[in-house]
């Protein structure tokens, strides 16, 4: 097996639900290697988002360990988490989440300190070179999501985490978006985890997991 980029083992996370403790993640293990695109599916509230938040260094697990590129990270302080998110992880959110007051290329250059020439090149690859100087409000839904994808690829992070990246797109554009993530993972040897509801794109991913009652089951 290739190099492991994301390693999660024995992850437990529970929330207070009224007076009871509800276990959202019950000893979950997930390991994603370089050059691999993994999808996590499951009903709403099954813990997919919590899993992604823990993998993305935004939430700490109650138990278990997270390792990124072979380095254990869950015990590090908050400040280090922020730095790790910037350097090691590329995020793709539902509804693009671009900053409205920055142009497409500034989302990468100003926010992440990406090189301008490299940004233009990346935009060319994703077919959005013509929108580089436009603000998000002037872009179509598909263009916005592709700018958001470019942002996730810009720092050359080895791990890409996508939260419902096709949610606001039609099926054709949704497929294109997943293909871009798949291509990035395969060609640049990155690991990608995608949480999705969209059954139509599952043929593009390498492995599919189903989240049910706090357990992660390979499909």
């Amino acid at each position: 097996m290739s190099e492991t980029i994301l390693g999660m083992s024995g992850i437990v996370k529970s929330y207070a639900d009224g007076e009871e403790q509800r276990c959202v993640l019950d000893h979950v293990n997930l390991s994603v290697g370089a050059g691999e695109l993994v999808a996590v599916v499951g009903p709403s509230g099954s813990g997919k988002s919590t899993l992604l938040n823990i993998a993305g260094m935004m939430l700490s697990p109650d138990e278990g360990d997270v390792a990124i590129c072979g380095r254990a990270v869950s015990h590090l302080p908050q400040r280090a988490w922020t730095k790790l998110r910037r350097e090691q992880i590329g995020f793709i959110f539902q509804n693009h989440q671009l900053l409205p007051y920055l142009t497409a290329e500034e989302q990468l250059t100003v926010m992440l300190g990406a090189d301008r020439t490299a940004t233009r090149e990346l935009f060319g690859e994703l077919g959005i070179a013509n929108v580089a100087t436009k603000h998000p409000a002037q872009l179509s839904g598909g263009e916005r999501q592709r700018v958001a994808i470019a942002r996730a690829f810009a720092t050359n992070a080895r791990l890409i985490l996508a939260d419902e990246p096709t949610a606001s797109l039609d099926s054709e554009r949704g497929r294109q978006v997943v293909q871009m993530i798949r291509q990035e993972a395969h060609q640049r040897n990155k690991a990608a985890v995608m949480v999705t509801h969209d059954q139509r794109v599952l043929d593009l991913v390498d492995r599919v997991f189903r989240m049910e009652d706090g357990k992660l089951i390979a499909v």
Binding site: R79, R86, F93, Q97, L99, L112, R151
Partner: peptide, 13 residues
């Protein structure tokens, strides 16, 4: 929301 996104992609507080 904007600040949340900024923090999520690694902008320091």
């Amino acid at each position: 929301q904007e600040f949340g996104v900024m923090k999520a992609i690694g902008t320091s507080t």
